[in-house]
Design a protein around this nucleic acid. Structure first.
Length: 873
DNA sequence: GCCTCGGAAGTC
DNA sequence: CTGGGACTTCCGAGGC
């Protein structure tokens, strides 16, 4: 027997026969808290689905339906089991459990049963996930089991004669349904009841990062590098020679080192597909041979397992490598950093601006064949560096810790937190609770679908110009709070008029009814309430750990509270979507309805009292504080006399904000005083504003404007930021002068082209028929960024669908405008010559929108002189 | 040259 | 197979 704490990375299942009776074993790939990897084989759970008679609520099904016919289907294992009554779409029905011989036959079986007239539930739940649901565990578990195999890296105490003997171990593994000797440190077997939940800990994952350098002439792999990170220690490996030995080398390394996470830069769209393509170029469809080159799945290297050995791309997006997690550093950087451009060079410059070693550009990747021929050592060095940086990126962004925290709070395996979508996380919590509350689990896509959009949040009209001293108030977790306080859930939605009750919660406009929480608390409100308190607990634990100087604990608690926040915010989206189980178009509509009602009601009350609401978007309100008009809006120096006035204004605003917050907060709709602004400016468009924040910290707050957009350019971002600084300091005249200077500079080409790069993401698909990139999803391919992407491809540079493509406008006088792709990050080539008129115009247009508020138009900015009107005299 | 429209991307 | 809606801006095309 062996007992240990570990983290479940991924799960799968396989069918096997025990004395001619069908069995299904669950495989859990884990990393022990103490560092070694473990494969856990769990026997004792039978896959099933549940059926009911959709036509009746009575005790027995209609006579036309036959339980026998279901039982006789060849996919069914043994006799049906009566489950009892469950709630399904507001009605109580009687349910039977149908056991299934093999999990992979469920889709077919579902259809057969539906054809017999039965309704089907709990019929699309992943079986490994079922184990987590039934045992009520998350990724961090304590496991007690028998050791079947103890390899080199397993703890000495786990080793004995039986389990270190290869042949004997293999026999024992096969005897209980395992596939053979999995490439892990240790293999154990257990039953579901020996899996127990433990508190989360940071798992010492083993990470593998790799990079291929390939020929542009013939796509062949020239060389490769890999880095393994284990216990904060890194080892570097390089691979040269013929393609076959390079790929074998990488594969052997993975099978020996047994990493949990596979990373690299742009592996999803480049390295992984290239491995597949090149190995198939050598061995065609010979699966076993392919596995020698690319068998990265965490399963035995045997004929039966070739399907799981080879990495596979699901629905053209995420890669699946059974037992391991593919985690592309490019995608992580893109999601968390939202960089202007996405090349590895650009991102590493962004993250480590002072470390030249990390982003020096010594290899011309567009001339890789020549470089490889002339200076292979430098190419290898470059290749190694490009495997190290992705790990550094993941560390810097704390990507892995965040995935693990998300897995922990959503109680899924780490791979689901890392690669799946929001509906999987929500499923994990919702199904768990529904199973324990006598509520049936409908299939996805099964509920009523909506045809038109549901109305969203309310956005208040904003006037152009400056407003002094503003208190900004925010509803805390608005949508989740509304779901809790009004008990909004598919399990509480009143579907029939006959069931109306006086205690129902009724939505303000569509008058949708929900059973009061005093009668029955809804499933989702229950979960959300639990998440709310758990977030507060993590926040508290974070605070405490910080005070005690326990850095590791503080870090963990912060990750956890953040993960809970992400998870809570995902609920609304899933329930407002048209495909999720437990959904109804009415739910999403009711949530936003109450939200609009609440916020408009507050605005109305403030208006009635003569308090000026300057702006509001969905869950925030900007209110002008009752501050003396003389008070300065820009902070005076501490020795100036006006500093007292400024301080008074600040105190008044803080006081005002706090009073509003407590006055309008009620049960289930907590209004928080978020920030105080000494000045607020908008040119009069919704979702676009700037504020000078004076509390709780001092900063410039810019929303929506070009400053934040990637399809703007550096010079515009800089100039607009400077302009806002001046405007908020009441120096609008100076700001106009400054702007004119910049426009003049660009006109006379004094500005370097690097400040004029515009970037936009570009779609595209690989047309395997014609062996070229296609952009036929655009009704008009004549767009600047599409043309820039085509130019990149032509030059032999990498292109990934969805990547941000940078370009410079070289001539806007013709239609369509002429552009040149920006390649300086990657090729060290000279920058293109830009169309100064175009950039001057775009600056004038964007900045003119703002100066318009002070009566300086776009034209005046461009011409350099202000036209005086009659009123100026 | 000016205007309108629809497609697309981006941000909140 | 799949979180949502509101809103702004830019570009190309086409009409006059």
């Amino acid at each position: 027997m062996w007992e240990e704490e570990m983290c479940i990375i991924s799960g799968d299942n396989r069918s096997w026969q025990d004395d001619n009776s069908p069995k299904t074993v669950i495989e859990l790939w884990c990393r022990a808290k103490s560092g070694h990897s473990v494969l856990v084989l769990v026997n004792g759970l039978r896959p099933y689905l549940e059926i009911f008679d959709p036509n009746t609520q009575s005790d027995s099904p209609m006579p036309t339906l036959s339980l026998d016919k279901v039982e006789q289907l060849k996919e069914v294992d043994g006799s049906l089991e009566l489950v009892g009554e469950k709630l399904f779409e507001g009605e109580i029905k009687k349910f039977w459990r149908v056991f299934v011989c093999e999990t992979w036959s469920v889709p077919k079986l579902r259809e057969k049963i539906k054809k017999l007239g039965w309704g089907v539930t709990s019929a699309d739940i992943n079986f490994a996930q079922r184990l987590l649901l039934d045992c009520d565990i998350g990724p961090h578990v304590n496991i007690v089991g028998n050791v079947l195999w103890a390899g080199e890296r397993s703890p000495d105490e786990a080793k004995n004669q039986n389990n270190t003997n290869l042949k004997l171990a293999e026999e024992n593994i096969n005897k209980i349904g395992g596939a053979g000797l999995y490439p892990v440190d240790m293999i154990i077997s257990c039953t579901p009841d020996s899996l127990k939940r433990t508190s989360p800990f940071p798992t010492p994952f083993v990470i593998f990062s790799f990079d291929l350098e390939t020929s542009i002439k013939n796509n062949k792999i020239l060389c490769a590098a890999a880095v393994i990170q284990r216990n904060n220690h890194r080892t570097e490996h390089t691979f040269t020679g013929d393609e076959k030995s390079i790929m074998e080398g990488l594969t052997n390394l993975i099978r020996e080192e047994d990493p949990d996470i596979i990373t690299g830069y742009n592996i999803d769209n480049f390295d992984l597909p290239r491995m597949k393509e090149r190995s198939e170029a050598i061995y065609g469809k010979k699966k076993m041979k392919l596995s020698e080159l690319n068998g990265w799945g965490r399963v035995p290297l045997i004929e039966n397992e070739t399907k799981r050995l080879l990495p596979e791309r699901r629905q053209n997006r995420v890669w699946r490598i059974p037992g391991r997690i593919p985690l592309d550093a490019w995608w992580q950087a893109r999601q968390t950093l939202r960089p202007q451009r996405e090349s590895l060079r650009y991102v590493s410059q962004l993250l480590w601006p002072d470390d030249d070693e990390m982003h020096k550009l010594d290899i011309d990747s567009s001339q890789m064949d020549r470089e490889w021929e002339e200076r292979p050592e430098e190419v290898l060095e470059y290749c190694v560096r490009d495997t190290i940086i992705p790990i550094d990126i993941l560390n810097k962004l704390q990507s892995i810790g965040r995935k693990e925290a998300l897995a922990s709070v959503s109680m899924t395996t780490v791979d689901i937190a890392a690669t799946a979508t929001t509906s999987w996380w929500i499923d994990s919590l919702v199904i768990r609770l529904a199973d324990r509350s006598g509520i049936a689990i409908p299939m996805t896509k099964s509920g009523p679908r909506r045809s038109d959009q549901i109305a969203g949040g309310y956005v208040h009209e904003v006037e152009a110009g400056m407003r002094p001293w503003i208190a900004v108030l925010d509803f805390k977790s608005m949508y989740p709070s509304i779901m809790i306080s009004n008990n909004i859930c598919s399990t509480t939605l009143v579907r029939n008029k006959e069931n109306n009750s006086e205690s129902d919660n009724i939505s303000p406009t569509t008058k949708t009814r929900y059973i009061s929480s005093t009668v029955r608390k809804g499933l989702v409100p229950q979960l959300l309430e639990h998440l709310m308190t758990s977030r507060d607990k993590h926040k508290e634990a974070f605070k405490k750990a910080n005070e005690e100087g326990n850095e590791e604990q503080a870090f963990l608690q912060d990750q956890l509270q953040y993960a809970v926040k992400i998870l809570m915010n995902s609920f609304y989206g899933v329930f407002a979507s048209s495909f999720y189980r437990f959904t109804d178009p009415k739910l999403g509509a009711s949530i936003t309805e109450w939200a609009r009602y609440n916020i408009k009601e507050i605005i109305r009350q403030l208006d009635d009292e003569g308090k000026h609401v300057v702006y509001s978007d969905t869950d925030s309100i900007f209110v002008q504080a009752p501050v003396d008009n003389e008070a300065p809006t820009s902070k005076p120096n501490s020795n100036e006399t006006s500093i007292d006035l400024w301080n008074d204004a600040k105190t008044t605003t803080l006081d005002f904000g706090e009073k509003l917050a407590s006055r309008f907060s009620k049960e289930g709709a907590e209004l928080e005083f978020e920030t105080a602004l000494s000045a607020f400016f908008s040119h009069g468009a919704k979702k676009r504003y700037v504020g000078r924040v004076v509390w709780p910290r001092e900063e410039l707050l810019i929303r929506g404007y070009e400053v934040r957009r990637t399809d703007s350019f550096e010079l515009l971002r800089e100039t607009m930021t400077d302009m806002f600084e001046l405007i908020l300091d009441n120096q609008s005249w100076n700001s106009v002068e400054m702007t004119k200077t910049v426009i003049d500079d660009v006109k006379s080409k004094k500005i370097p082209a690097s400040k004029l790069v515009i970037s936009r993401s570009c779609k595209g698909r690989w047309d395997s028929k014609n062996k070229q990139w296609s952009f036929d999803m655009y009704s008009n391919e004549n767009l600047p960024y599409v043309r820039a992407a085509k130019e990149r491809i032509k030059l032999g540079l990498s292109f990934t669908p969805g990547m941000k493509v940078g370009y410079i406008v070289t001539d806007a006088s013709s239609s369509p405008m002429k552009v040149k792709s920006w390649l300086v990050d990657e090729l060290d080539s000279p920058p293109p010559d830009y169309d100064s008129e175009y950039y001057a115009k775009r600056l004038a247009k964007a900045l003119g929108r703002i100066t318009e508020a002070f009566n300086w138009s776009e034209k005046e900015l461009l011409s350099g002189s202000r036209q005086q009107s009659l009123f100026d005299f």
